[in-house]
Computed example of a mutant assay.
Amino acid sequence: MAAMVDSEYVAASQDTDPRKLHEKWTKALVKSVKADVWGQVIEAVDEYTALSNDIVAQAARLQMTENDNVLLHRVVCALKARCDCATAPDGATTTPTADDMKKIVPAFEELFAGEKAEYAPFPLALEQLEKYIAESFWLDETSRKLQESVKPGGVLVPASEISSTGSHVSLELVDVGIKDAESFQNPFIRVTVMDRKGHLLEHKQETPVADRQHRYQIDINTIVHIQTSVEELREKDAAIFLELVHYKPLKHKHSTKAWSVLEMDELTSDLKVLEIYKKPVQPSRKKFKLLTTKKLFLQVRVHVK
């Protein structure tokens, strides 16, 4: 069985069309998971191993968005983690399970959906993949580190990775005041640093899913470390944009509900109570439309060092 799998992948290894590779990889993943669920562990491990090896071999040559890169990297981590679990002595490793691998298939089917695609949260917690999540495989160092969260589920840069040059800002995102807070699925805050023309000054960061939702409030309770120095932010007339993002299951995508902004004159160490605006985000900062007339705000504690 293993020899047949190897020859299949060797025969197709010259193909670098993302769509054809995606179709091939999806079929292989479905086949692997089916064997796993049926208890055909040896066959499943052979299939998982061949698939992960082929993805690693091909990925560096593909033109992919950052979201595609992260999703594909997590799939490879899951494949390797499942092989470890399936071949470990009884009780030594219990996750991810065969049922966990079934959850990966719908996520994998979203791959290569385009530049504007926003994928659903990856179905496995990063703790289940911790042995492999730090391995780069084909990712550059920056993209890999963006996967590693201070709290599970987010896309955050640790403070230790920030240059010591100049002053830097850390944002302690406290909560968001919004009507029907409990109705939002998997809400989080996306943090973007842009100049007035919409040019990004650094990678976007995303908090983990909110800690708690109740009536008019979504609790975030996450610290985000801005990578760009205060001096450079001021020089480029930039601002820090905070988007409230939630998942729409019927449309299988994330959507921005509202946004706030921290201007340069607000980057002082204390609690800020920010107005919340209707989407879309306005990098030019010339047009602001309040989301509601109710006294609902986004609270963030700014720390400048």
Rank of each mutant, 00 (worst) to 15 (best):
A3N: 14
V5Y: 10
D6A: 12
Y9N: 01
R19N: 14
K20Y: 12
E23A: 11
T26P: 06
V30A: 07
S32T: 11
V33D: 03
V33Y: 04
V37W: 08
G39Y: 01
Q40E: 12
V41K: 04
E43M: 11
V45K: 01
E47R: 12
T49D: 08
T49I: 05
A50E: 07
D54E: 04
A59D: 08
E66V: 06
N69H: 12
L72K: 02
L72Q: 00
R74T: 03
D84T: 04
A86G: 03
D90P: 10
T95G: 14
D99Q: 13
K102V: 13
G114C: 05
E115V: 13
Y119H: 01
P121N: 13
A125V: 15
E130N: 09
W138A: 01
D140N: 14
K145N: 11
L146M: 09
K151E: 13
L156P: 08
S160Y: 05
S167H: 14
V169M: 07
S170A: 00
E172L: 08
E182W: 12
V193Q: 03
V193T: 13
D195A: 06
R196S: 00
L200W: 14
L200M: 11
L201K: 03
L201M: 01
H203R: 14
T207W: 02
R212E: 09
Q213I: 06
Q217G: 04
I220M: 03
T222L: 13
Q227F: 11
L233I: 07
D237K: 13
A239Q: 01
F241T: 03
H246Y: 15
Y247I: 05
H252V: 04
K257E: 15
K257M: 11
W259H: 03
S260Y: 02
M264T: 15
K272A: 02
L274S: 04
P280D: 00
Q282W: 05
S284K: 08
R285S: 06
K289Y: 12
K295C: 13
L296Q: 11
F297K: 09
R301Q: 06
H303Q: 13
V304L: 07
